[in-house]
Design a binder for these strands. Structure first.
Lengths: 345, 345
DNA sequence: CTGAAAGCGCTAACAT
DNA sequence: ATGTTAGCGCTTTCAG
């Protein structure tokens, strides 16, 4: 079960040269004669020589690997970002080692250690729902490990960050619901410590405020990984002053809402309208066709990777960091169609 | 921007020992005194020593990496298999390098070369739609590289394979459609050279045959990556003897069908029933709620990885290979509800 | 223009 | 029980 590969030594021996000459010839060094170069290159080609990246890594003390930590691979949004990460990394000669936190801090910390032990050249991170303290990233960053955060970022650390315009997405969604006549808009959202949660909540509040609608805490529900979303959604739509719209922050929340609404026998959008953050291709074919806030997931992966590689390859320490904010889009579909209510705006 | 790690040499110097003693102490060799062991272990712990896996790989001439080639990461089924691959590989001390063929043979071949150049210890492969010739895998296998195929496998090579019971899934789906009264069942499916395409077609044919329904070529449509699915679906449901059911082999095909059906103003399942292979969590919330053939994607990834590691770690060459067939399940929903037609069965 | 030798971090055969 | 040494594949001084 051995897979024998041609080495520089093999070439040197076969051609009666030294390994250093072969090495130099292969990388086109100016100090090697044209004849020797050609000889080496042709032989290497013929023997299908492939430099051993492991030896190269050991020598250079870097792995040409990028470590990625995401909450979940089997999630539409993250698999799309990974797609972008992958494409960009390969183009630049890096490979990608993907790990999942499964929304647990412990696993996030374990992954960080594992990736560092594997000597990744840098880290691309989207935080878990449980992560409030990011000491495990800070200490590494201080020791010089390049880290870029994307999507679920932290304010507590200064580095490159890439995120979607969650504020705008939430604002557009909420404003749109208001404009179609909704007044009691509930917001089901992710764990309260996440950046995306805060940003979306602010967009939601701003839209309400701009339209002179009071903000009600009772209409905002936070969910962690364990929550029984459908139960909460059911309770919500059974309230005396039940909401006439739900703005939901993830696919898991949205589907639970749909289930609860269906079971309650309510009509969308007439009894209750629905808008969700989603990157699902099938949003259009859901029942009801889902009005969606979409994020440029692929691009986010691309940009985060480019920034990380910039950090990794920079000669001098970088100390001015930007946070890139990518545009979000509202796609209006049947789940939030016009109502026959008087318009305020 | 350097990330300095503690090495065995550092420990040896600090403790006034030789590197080999430290190395042996760290791996608990019996020839080291308890005192020395403890000394080394404690100091290593204190300094947070992490063995350099790159050096280990160079020494052992193996990377502890598993290469994965899938058509597409941002695809429900494959991201679920990757999840399973990942979990199993990490548990066994391997990391995973994922690449995508994007349904192109050229990219598949390029990925293989890339992964081999990176010295992966083995390969986990699901073939691209364009791949009919698998010479690029055979030659590597002959040179001793462990390869396991999953989902989209090939008959032309002898090794471990893991697949879903596509025959059964297709049989159940077709039979179910027949039992609810459908007689003209179309089958939209993937590229004709894929194993999954053949197996599903056979299951489909067998169900028709068992129920004494003639097989019509016109009702079977194959699609590659480029095809205009919606156009073909539209043509299909405009046929004079238009189908009264569609059995579709992928999400992309299913959504195109739904779109075509919606545009034509047909009712599901009364005018036309629909069953699709899908691993989408939201299948239940599609319009119509989609009757689905589901595959155990996570498990498939797990099992394929276990088999690959078995191959990699086997002392003696393995020459008897099994093909693991995982069960598929039919989940009946509204898209294939009972019709008011006379029952044949 | 080319070769010899050292070293990246680790392990193991070979001393002692 | 511990140290010395060589070597995995490659790059890179340093010497010719």
């Amino acid at each position: 079960m051995k897979f024998e590969a041609v080495t520089i030594k093999d070439i040197a021996r076969a051609l009666g040269l030294s390994t250093s000459t072969v090495s130099r010839a292969l990388r086109g060094s100016y100090e090697i004669s044209a004849d020797t170069k050609q000889l080496v290159l042709e032989y290497a080609e013929k023997m299908n020589y492939q430099p051993n990246p492991i030896a190269k890594s050991l020598k250079e003390n870097r792995s040409w690997a990028i470590g990625v930590i995401v909450p979940e691979i089997a999630n539409n949004f993250f698999s799309q970002t990974i797609n972008g990460i992958d494409a960009t990394a390969y183009k630049r000669g890096y490979h990608v080692v993907i790990t999942q936190s499964h929304e647990s801090v412990e696993r996030e910390v374990a992954n960080v250690h594992n990736l560092v032990a594997r000597r990744v050249d840098g880290l691309l991170v989207s935080l878990s729902m449980q992560t409030s303290d990011i000491a495990h990233f800070k200490s590494l960053q201080e020791r010089g490990l390049p880290i870029v955060f994307f999507d679920r970022i932290s304010e507590d650390i200064s580095t490159f960050k890439v995120k979607a315009n969650n504020y705008k997405g939430a604002y557009l969604a909420t404003r749109h619901l208001i404009e179609t006549g909704c007044r009691r808009i509930a917001h089901l959202t992710t764990a309260s410590c996440l950046s995306i949660t805060r940003e979306r909540l602010e967009g939601y509040k701003a839209a309400l405020s701009d339209c002179h609608i009071d903000y009600h805490e009772d209409y905002v529900k936070y969910f962690n990984d364990q929550s029984d979303v459908e139960q909460v959604a059911t309770d919500l739509i059974s309230m005396p002053e039940k909401p006439d719209a739900i703005f939901s922050a993830s696919d898991r929340l949205t589907t639970a809402c749909i289930a609860a609404i269906q079971k309650a026998g309510l009509q969308v959008p007439d009894d209750i309208a629905l808008v969700g953050f989603t990157n699902l291709h099938v949003a259009e074919f859901l029942n009801p066709a889902l009005t969606a806030v979409t994020q440029p997931a692929y691009e986010m992966g691309q940009i985060a990777t480019e920034l990380l590689i910039k950090l990794i390859e920079s000669k001098k320490p970088i100390d001015t960091f930007e946070t890139r904010i990518l545009d979000t889009t509202l796609v209006i579909r049947a789940s939030s169609g016009k109502k026959s209510l008087p318009q305020l705006l």
